[in-house]
Amino acid sequence: MTTLAVVSAGLGQPSSTRLLADRLAEAAAGALRGDATVETIELRDHAHAMVDATLTGFPSGTFRAAAETVANADGLIAVTPVFNASFSGLFKTFFDVLERGSLEGTPVLLGATGGTARHSLAIDYTMRPLFAYLRASVVPTGVYAASEDWGSAETALPERVARAGAELAALVEARPAPAKDDPYEAPVPFERLLAGY
C-alpha cells in the first residue's frame, strides 16, 4: 500500500489551496498502479503546535503525528497560498520543524494558489529551492492555480493537474525500497563469541 501525504497550508475553510491539494492527490493516487492511501494535513489546524515546536525543538501531540506522517510517506504533495510573492509563513514553519533528513529522496509534487497568475513563478523561485535544500526529489511539473483557473472551462488546470499527478506516481513507483538493517543478517559465529572467554 502506497501512502501519499498531502500538506495544505490554506488559511480559510474551505480554501482554494485545499481544493488544489485534493485534486492533485486524486490525480496522483489514480495514476499509481496499486492502492494508495492519502493522508491530508491541514496546517491551519496545527499552527499553535508548530510555533511551540519551533520554540522547543520538539513536536508534540497531533502535530507530532502529522510530522511523522509526512516523514514516513512514499510521496508528498505540498500546496501553499502565495503571499507577497512567496510561500506562506505557515508552510515554511512546517518544513522548518521537520526532523533533518526526513524528506531526503522523497518524491514531492509542488502546488500553489493565488489571486493572480503574476505569482505563478513562486513555485520555481521559492518552493523548489526549499525542497532542493531538504534533498527531496521534486517532480518537473509544479501546478499553480490563480483565481481565474477555477471558474473557466477554458483553463489548462485539469491538464496540468493530471500531468503532475502522473509524474509523482511514476517517481513514487521508481523509488527504491528503503534498506532495512537486519541485525541477524550476518551473525557472529558462536566460536568467535566464545574465543574471548
Rank of each mutant, 00 (worst) to 15 (best):
R118W: 06
F63R: 02
A153H: 00
P107T: 12
R33W: 10
V79P: 03
R192Q: 15
A73H: 04
G30Q: 06
V70A: 05
R44A: 15
G142P: 08
F94Y: 05
W150P: 10
I41F: 02
F131I: 07
L109R: 04
R100M: 12
F190D: 15
S152M: 13
V108E: 10
A31I: 09
H48T: 15
F58T: 13
Y133V: 11
A164M: 01
A85R: 06
A112H: 08
A174P: 00
W150H: 11
T17W: 07
G196W: 10
L157E: 04
V6D: 07
Y144P: 00
R163Q: 14
D52K: 09
A122F: 00
R135V: 00
L20Q: 04
L168T: 12
R135S: 11
A36R: 11
A112Y: 05
R192A: 14
T80S: 15
S102N: 12
A71M: 11
A136F: 04
V82K: 05
R33T: 14
A132I: 02
L76K: 00
I41D: 03
Y144V: 01
S137W: 15
D22K: 07
S120H: 13
T126K: 00
A66R: 08
E26F: 00
T2W: 00
L43R: 09
T113I: 03
R100G: 15
H119C: 04
G10P: 07
P107Q: 10
T56V: 09
T56C: 10
S8A: 11
G142S: 06
G165D: 05
V7G: 04
G114S: 09
R175T: 15
S15R: 03
S88M: 02
R118V: 09
P176G: 00
V6Y: 07
M127Q: 14
L157P: 07
R18S: 13
P178D: 06
V70G: 01
G105Y: 08
A117M: 08
A53Y: 05
T54K: 11
Y184S: 10
V82R: 04
L194H: 09
F87S: 04
V79I: 06
A53E: 07
T37Q: 14
A21K: 10
V38A: 02
G34V: 08
A112S: 14
E148V: 06
I77F: 02
A169Q: 13
V188I: 14
G30K: 08
V79H: 04
A85W: 06
